[in-house]
Design a protein around this nucleic acid. Structure first.
Lengths: 188, 188
DNA sequence: AGCTTTTGGCTAACCACATTAGCCAACTTC
DNA sequence: GAAGTTGGCTAATGTGGTTAGCCAAAAGCT
């Protein structure tokens, strides 16, 4: 039997791609194995199990999200930066719904966990995007949570087909960004 | 063998309670059966399967959420109404995480689907809460989606332990409501 | 009451999927 | 090229959802 030349990264990226295609819930070990050209039990030579695989997909997704938002805000400030970051985030979630779903509910195990590192980078991007607004240091955590909540909520609702009403979803997103911008701009 | 005197509603409410206790992901047919005092296959005399059970839990949860927010906004308007509705919604999600999780991603099958009816009632509550703001009819859909995104995002992130930072989560929620209020209050 | 029908339990069995055990060939290393 | 390590494999186990088919209890009828 010839070897497949597999390694951990190959398994994880294949699984992530598959999750985007068929949905995270439909991602089975058998499907991943088939995709990489191997029998199911062989996957366990590279990953510890489904839970482990999910965490690695999540780490990949968070790293990619942090990259995308980080790039998007370069050279921008204020509403410009916020808009760019929000769009980059949403684009990622819509083009990679399976990967993103894998990030929901993952707990970071420690400060050196790749998940924690990627989340930290993502948070820094949004912190940078908020820098030009007049948010006091005391309120920064609140503002970050607010931005994160709206991005997470909008993206997951849309990718779950949660919006039935008639209006154009892209328009709603831009409207939402403008709402947040006004909310951040006007003083308490 | 004596009968357990079960019916569909009893199975669904037991399953919903169990989902809140152990988490939706850990809800198995065996667990539900044990809770209602019956063997697993007997459940299928009352529900069509796990998918069907999930939909029925979702319908229950949405109805309860619509009740709670509807009651909360009675006799209130403007920021008062928005705050009351938002708090009621969040309270429900935090006290019933399993039920709420069941509502994510459910598709309504038609206009007479209990899920569609409950979602319509919930939307009406929030529409009423927004009435005192100066939102044009054209923007109403956008505003509703914005509020829904915020609430959904915040509630799910919190119930998934998504907030690591130090600030008090309840404070963040109030801050978020105030942000949305400002955003809705100031003109475009 | 007795007879029939429907209903709601049950056991047994099946299937899909994750995972483990244990074998063996293929690379790697010295 | 011998020895060790690695990465495949088949076989088997366990859990969970679901179906089939049996049978007694409730409900309805005469």
């Amino acid at each position: 039997m010839p070897r497949a030349g597999l390694d951990r990264a190959a398994v994880v990226t294949a699984a992530a791609a598959l999750a985007d295609e068929v949905g995270l819930a439909a991602l089975t070990m058998g499907l991943v194995a088939e995709r990489v050209g191997v029998r199911t039990p062989s996957l366990y030579k590279h990953i510890a199990g489904q839970h482990d695989l999910n965490r690695r997909i999540a780490a990949l997704a968070l790293t990619e999200t942090a990259d995308a938002t980080g790039t998007a805000i370069q050279g921008r400030a204020g509403q410009d930066a916020l808009t760019a970051a929000a769009r980059a985030f949403r684009d990622f979630v819509l083009t990679h719904p399976g990967r993103y779903a894998a990030t929901i509910g993952v707990a970071e195990t420690g400060p050196d966990d790749p998940i924690a590192i990627a989340e930290g980078r993502l948070l820094e991007s949004f912190t940078a995007a908020l820098r030009a607004y007049d948010v006091s240091p005391h309120d920064l955590d609140h503002a970050l949570r607010a931005v994160r909540s709206f991005l997470h909520g909008f993206a997951t609702l849309q990718s779950a087909q949660g919006f039935r009403r008639s209006a154009h979803v892209g328009d709603s997103f831009e409207w939402l960004i403008a709402l947040v911008d006004r909310g951040l701009r006007f003083p308490l």
